[in-house]
Simulated scan of single mutants.
Amino acid sequence: MRKSMLKPVVASTLSALLIFELSGCGTVIYPDRRGQASGRIDPTVVIMNGIGLLFWVIPGLVAFAVDFATGAIYFPSGRYAVAPEALQRAIKDNGEIDTVQLQQIIEQQTGHSIPFDHPNLQQQPSSPELISQLNILPRA
């Protein structure tokens, strides 16, 4: 490779690494963790940010700041959420919720099974107002 062609390749590679480091490792790798306020710190993310800190001090500090600010540096809290759009299939034509379908969706999305027949489970009736707030429409 000629010397004149080597400069743009090195410059592009270093620019790409710098941009990746500026965005914060945990934020890029674990976007689903964003929004957490606290928890146990993930050592993998800390090590990756630390490696960036060894090579470039300012971008490494920015990566730590971004990951702490977004919450991506923390392990998941153990709480799970399902997007309202995914729940669309569980609503019957008349607006009632199909609990069997809902249980399947929750298990599929979170990997956890919720026993809807448990005696301590309190099920509240849904209202059209709640469903409209979630932008979920009954099938027509």
Rank of each mutant, 00 (worst) to 15 (best):
Gly71Ile: 04
Pro84Leu: 02
Glu129Tyr: 11
Arg139Leu: 10
Ile106Gln: 07
Glu96Gly: 06
Asn94His: 07
Val100Ile: 12
Ala37Leu: 15
Pro138His: 07
Leu53Ala: 00
Ile97Gly: 01
Pro8Trp: 06
Gly95Pro: 07
Ile131Ala: 04
Gln36Glu: 03
Pro138Ser: 06
Ala11Arg: 07
Asn120Thr: 12
Ala63Asn: 03
Val28Glu: 01
Phe20Gln: 01
Thr13Ser: 13
Gln108Pro: 02
Val46Trp: 00
Thr70Ala: 05
Gln108Glu: 14
Gln122Leu: 11
Ala65Arg: 12
Val100Ser: 11
Glu107Gln: 15
Ala65Asn: 06
Asn120Arg: 15
Gly95Thr: 07
Met1Leu: 11
Arg2Trp: 10
Met5His: 14
Leu22Arg: 06
Gly78Gln: 10
Thr13Ile: 10
Gly26His: 05
Ile105Trp: 10
Val46Ala: 01
Asp42Leu: 12
Ile41Asn: 02
Ala140Thr: 13
Phe116Glu: 04
Asp117Arg: 13
Ile131Asn: 03
Leu134Ala: 14
Arg139Ala: 13
Ile58Asp: 04
Leu130Val: 05
Pro115Asp: 14
Ala83Tyr: 12
Thr110Phe: 09
Pro119Leu: 05
Met5Trp: 15
Ser113Lys: 13
Gln122Ile: 13
Phe116His: 08
Asp32Cys: 00
Leu54Tyr: 14
Leu18Tyr: 14
Pro138Cys: 03
Ile58His: 09
Ile131Ser: 08
Pro59Ile: 01
Gly24Ser: 05
Leu18Met: 11
Arg79Thr: 13
Asp67Arg: 06
Gln103Arg: 15
Tyr30Lys: 08
Val10Gln: 10
Ile47Asn: 00
Pro128Ser: 11
Gln109Pro: 08
Arg89Trp: 06
Gly35Glu: 03
